[in-house]
């Protein structure tokens, strides 16, 4: 009698682990998608990352670095929304994303504000001594991009991944104010 109960617990635990590894579910995404001129949705889970890394060349030094990085990751999820004019998404929409990142384990490490309204925020998930994930919010007047990298990654590796696997090119904006938080 005990065994089926134990099995049920095991299944429940493994399912909860799977759910935790899944991408964020943020209702604001649907609201933004409905108003956006263009939406891009990239979903690469672990199996797809392994597959996609097969497309990367070992001979090219840049691609070889990305290949090595990707081997450790569990998933890359990108949601990008482009709007035809400014003000089509609200501060509360962005706040809905930030609210998800206030969960235990997550902390904001970088916040960049530029004079032309292009803001970038980087959040990391601490998992023991390592970083278990990373989220980038790129907030622009007519564009909003959410990137979730699930798995062990360092923020400095982000530049290696930029422009690959659906992650937009990360160009350092001319920052007016940069603050680093723990």
């Amino acid at each position: 009698m005990k065994q089926p109960f134990l099995k049920l617990i095991m299944v429940g635990l493994s399912l909860s682990c799977l759910c935790a590894a899944e991408e964020f579910k943020i209702p604001a995404m649907d609201r933004m998608a409905a108003r956006a001129k263009e939406t891009v949705d990239v979903t690469l889970d672990q199996s797809m990352l392994q597959l996609a890394s097969g497309f990367l060349s070992k001979d090219d030094p840049d691609e070889a670095k990305v290949k090595k990085l990707v081997a450790k990751l569990k998933g890359i999820y990108v949601r990008s929304f482009e709007f035809s004019k400014e003000g089509e998404y609200s501060a509360s929409d962005v706040e809905a994303f930030r609210a998800q990142l206030k969960q235990p384990g997550w902390s904001r490490i970088v916040g960049v504000k530029s004079v032309n309204g292009e803001n970038t925020e980087i959040y990391v998930l601490k998992s023991g001594d390592q970083l278990g994930g990373l989220v980038v919010l790129a907030i622009e007047p007519k564009e909003f991009t959410f990137v979730h990298i699930d798995g062990p990654i360092n923020p400095e590796d982000l530049s290696e991944l930029s422009g690959h696997m659906g992650i937009p090119e990360i160009v350092k904006p001319k920052a007016k104010a940069e603050k680093k938080e723990e």
Partner: peptide, 26 residues
């Protein structure tokens, strides 16, 4: 088929990319 990319614009243009691994080929 696993959907990996979905692009949609306000004019109704939609592009979906699906992938299915199959041994050495994709």
């Amino acid at each position: 088929w696993k959907p990996i990319v979905r692009v949609r614009d306000s004019s109704g243009e939609v592009s979906n990319i699906y992938v299915q691994p199959g041994g050495k080929r994709v």
